[in-house]
Design a protein around this nucleic acid. Structure first.
Length: 376
RNA sequence: GGGCAGUUACCAGAGUGGCCAAAUGGGGUUGACUGUAACUCAACUGGCGUACGCCUUCGGUGGUUCGAAUCCAUCACUGCCCA
């Protein structure tokens, strides 16, 4: 993987760049749709590619390991062949599941002992086997196995958690270096900054992560219960330290406003379930704000879903029709909302990139951000 | 014409003397959702009020009772059975 920094906004830390992988190029800043089980829920691969114009998608180590299982993915020849997505894939390590499935896991020095949420069976994830699994999945970008510290953790817990993540990182990198890709294209490995909402821990973590000299770096443990202002502050603290010539990936974030704020602070890559999950639950993101498609007020609104939208669904269907589909639980509602929201998120980062290149990112961001948070 | 069963909120349907503005579903309205255990979850859903509460409801009418969705009488309507 290579990263080329192309432009930097004169008035902020916003950057435009290009990541090159064996599965293609990625223009940053970029939003990566989440496809946990090897599928971006309710969206076809051709829609992702041709309509939404996704450049890279996510998969999840924990979920794919449980189902269909690593053997099946290896037999398929890797996840790209299995799911028919020819562009880059990034896999999360399962670190987030350490956080979100906290009721069914036990953390030890060796790794995380899990109970499967599917059948209750016992499993152990270690920094090493999580690298092995991601080798088998064949992700272009693999993530280190970390503990995603809750945003409400106290200092003592956050420090110990961060230190565990650091020790795990050294083991993960060692395994990464002593193993080879399985499918003939190269893979890279991103470490993850933790440290909760404590600036000194974040600095310490960012320095440790930077010293590992990976091809890209991630910021984790944000948007997990802390106020947005804290998150922005942590991004600033961390990005002062993370190398400028490597892509920076803010994991799991977030709202359109979150993304613009983070781009302004020097983040290049994002992923979030919000456009797909909230879309499935009837919420649409637009340049004018968010709307709940189940609301009664759209009942007889026969205007297009989003006149400013870039996706074919935006003008092909009316709000009244989409509301009808949402209210009657039609599958098409999930598809339309997911496609619209993902296309909007990709449009958001594409426009951000254009304004960074044009040199007016900050004023542009200022002019759109308030509107994005409105409720239509 | 005779017999039996029934009529409860938007719908279905519990409740058969006070704990009932009335269970539970569905439907409806409004929220929530940030590295996806999520086509999920929460609140509200007779009226007025933030709330304590007050008012009007269980086919109609009239009774019994301190008190009725619940008991009695009668009328109306619905379903099934016999003529």
């Amino acid at each position: 993987m290579q990263f080329q920094l192309q432009h930097t906004d004169p008035k902020s830390n916003a950057r435009a760049g290009q990541i090159t992988t064996d599965h293609g190029e990625i223009l940053t800043p970029i939003f990566m749709p989440v496809g946990t089980l090897g599928s971006v829920k309710a969206v076809h691969q051709h829609e992702l590619r041709d309509d939404i114009k996704a450049q890279i998608i996510l998969g999840n180590t924990y979920h794919l390991y449980l189902r269909p299982g690593i053997q099946i993915i290896e037999e398929a020849g890797g996840l790209h062949k299995f799911n028919g997505w020819g562009r880059p894939i990034l896999t999360d390590s399962g670190g987030f599941q350490v956080f979100s499935l906290s009721g069914q896991r036990k953390l030890k020095e060796e790794g995380a002992h899990f109970r499967s949420h599917v059948d209750g069976s016992k499993h152990l994830f270690t920094p090493e086997n999580v690298v092995d699994i991601q080798r088998s999945i064949g992700a272009d970008i693999m993530m280190a196995f970390d503990e995603c510290t809750p945003g409400t953790a106290d200092y003592q817990y956050a420090k110990q958690s961060m230190e565990l993540t650091h020790r795990w990182l050294e083991r993960g990198i060692a395994r990464f270096r002593e193993t080879e890709p399985k499918y003939g294209y190269s893979q890279t490995f991103f470490p993850i900054v933790q440290g909760c909402t404590y600036p000194d821990l974040r600095r310490q973590s960012a320095e440790f992560i930077s010293s590992q000299n990976a091809e890209g770096n991630a910021i984790g443990g944000l948007a997990v219960g802390e106020p947005a202002e804290k998150m922005y502050e942590m991004i600033e603290v961390v990005n002062e330290i993370l190398p400028k010539d490597k892509p920076r990936y803010l994991m799991g974030v977030g709202t359109p406003q979150n993304i613009l704020e983070a781009i302004e602070r020097g983040v290049d890559m994002f992923d979030c379930v919000m456009p797909t999950r909230n879309g499935r639950n009837g919420m649409l993101f637009t340049w004018n704000g968010t709307l709940n498609m189940r609301n009664e007020k759209w009942k007889n609104d026969f205007s297009p879903i989003d006149e400013a939208g870039t996706s074919i669904v935006d003008t092909a269907y009316t709000k009244a029709y989409l509301r009808h589909l949402c209210v009657t639980d039609e599958f098409l509602a999930l598809q339309i909302a997911s496609i619209h929201n993902l296309a909007f998120y990709l449009d958001l980062v594409t426009q951000a990139r254009q304004h960074i290149i044009a040199g007016d990112f900050s004023s542009w961001k200022q002019s759109v951000i308030e509107q994005l948070g409105k409720r239509i």
